[in-house]
C-alpha cells in the first residue's frame, strides 16, 4: 500500500540531513562507491576515446576521408544553405505531425468499436494499418508522390510537397494508430468497471477515462515515432522538394565532397537529441506529479 506522504514531491531529503548529522555507515559506503564508479567511468571513456583518436588517423585512407567528409571550409560554406533547407523539413514535419496524431487516434478508436453498424469502419482501419505498416515508407512516398500527380491535376494539386506529406501521413498514422491501440488496450479492465459503474457510457468512458490514460502511457513510444518522422521527412527529397537532404546532395555535387552530408547529419542531431531529452523530462515530471513515491 502507498504510504501516506506529507509532501507531494516525494523526493528524499537525504542530502539536507547529511550536511548536519555525521554520515552513517551506509552513506559513507555509498559515497565511496559513487566516487569510485565515477573515476572508473572517466578513465575507461578517456582510454576508448584516446585510442580512437590515435588509431583512426593511422588508417591508410584517413587523410582522404578527412578531406571529403570532414572538410572545414566546405562545411562553413554549405552550412547556411543546409540550415535554410532544413526549415522546409521542419515545416513538413509540423503540418504532418498533427494530422498523424488525429488520424492515428481515429484509426485506433475505429479498431475498438464494437457496434455492428460501424463494422465497416473497423474493417477499414484494420486493412489500412496492415497495408501502410507493411510497405516501406520510401515506397509509399514514391508511389503516391509520382502516381497521384500523374492524374494530371492543376497546381497546387500536383505539388510534390502535398503528396509527399500525404504519403508520410498515411504511413505514420498507421504506426501511430498501433501505438495508441496498444495504449488503449493496456488500461486495466478495472478502470472501465469503475467508470461504467458510475453510469458513464462506453464512449464517455473511452473519452474521459481510457484515452487520457492511454495517451500518457504511450508518450515515449509515440515520441520515438515522431523522431523517426523528423528523419523520414528527408525521404521526400526523392520526389522533388528541395529540403535538407536534397540541398546536401546538390552541394555534394557542386563541391565534389561529402561534407554537406555530415553537415546535414549534425543539423538533424541538433534537433532530435534535445527532442528526446525533453520528452524524458516531461515523463519524469508527470511521474513525480501523480505518484507519491519514487523508486530508484
Amino acid at each position: 500500500m502507498v504510504p501516506e506522504m506529507s509532501d507531494h514531491s516525494g523526493t528524499s531529503s537525504l542530502s539536507e540531513d547529511s550536511s548536519r548529522r555525521p554520515l552513517s555507515r551506509r552513506q559513507v559506503f555509498e559515497r565511496r562507491q559513487k566516487r569510485r564508479s565515477l573515476l572508473i567511468a572517466l578513465a575507461s571513456s578517456l582510454a576508448v576515446i584516446g585510442l580512437l583518436v590515435v588509431l583512426i588517423p593511422l588508417t591508410p585512407g584517413w587523410y582522404k576521408v578527412k578531406r571529403s567528409f570532414f572538410n572545414g571550409p566546405i562545411l562553413d560554406e554549405t552550412f547556411p544553405a543546409l540550415l535554410r533547407a532544413f526549415v522546409k523539413d521542419i515545416q513538413i514535419f509540423l503540418w504532418c505531425a498533427p494530422c498523424i496524431l488525429v488520424l492515428g487516434m481515429l484509426l485506433a478508436i475505429c479498431r475498438n468499436v464494437r457496434s455492428p453498424l460501424l463494422f465497416p469502419l473497423r474493417l477499414f482501419a484494420a486493412a489500412y494499418t496492415d497495408i501502410f505498416r507493411g510497405i516501406p515508407v520510401i515506397l509509399t512516398i514514391l508511389l503516391i508522390g509520382f502516381g497521384i500527380p500523374g492524374l494530371g491535376m492543376d497546381r497546387p494539386w500536383n505539388s510534390p510537397y502535398l503528396w509527399g506529406s500525404v504519403a508520410l501521413i498515411l504511413a505514420y498514422s498507421s504506426y501511430v494508430s498501433e501505438v495508441f491501440r496498444a495504449g488503449i488496450e493496456s488500461i486495466h479492465e478495472s478502470q472501465r468497471a469503475g467508470a461504467r459503474s458510475l453510469g458513464l457510457s462506453t464512449s464517455q468512458t473511452l473519452r474521459h477515462i481510457i484515452i487520457p490514460q492511454a495517451i500518457r502511457r504511450v508518450i515515449p513510444p509515440l515520441m520515438n515515432d515522431f523522431v523517426s518522422l523528423q528523419k523520414d521527412v528527408a525521404l521526400i527529397s526523392l520526389i522533388g522538394p528541395i529540403e535538407i537532404l536534397r540541398q546536401a546532395g546538390i552541394d555534394k555535387s557542386k563541391y565534389a565532397n561529402f561534407t554537406p552530408y555530415v553537415g546535414a547529419a549534425i543539423i538533424f542531431l541538433l534537433l532530435t537529441i534535445p527532442e528526446t531529452r525533453f520528452v524524458d523530462h516531461l515523463m519524469s515530471r508527470e511521474r513525480r506529479r501523480t505518484s507519491g513515491t519514487a523508486v530508484r
Binding site: 478495472s190 478502470q191 468497471a193 469503475g194 467508470a195 461504467r196 459503474s197 458510475l198 453510469g199 477515462i209 490514460q213 501523480t290
Partner: peptide, 15 residues
C-alpha cells in the same frame, strides 16, 4: 447504474 453505486476492492480510482 446511475441508481446503484459500487465500490471495489482495489478502489478503481482514476489515477
Amino acid at each position: 447504474r446511475q441508481r446503484i453505486g459500487m465500490v471495489f476492492q482495489s478502489f478503481n480510482l482514476f489515477p
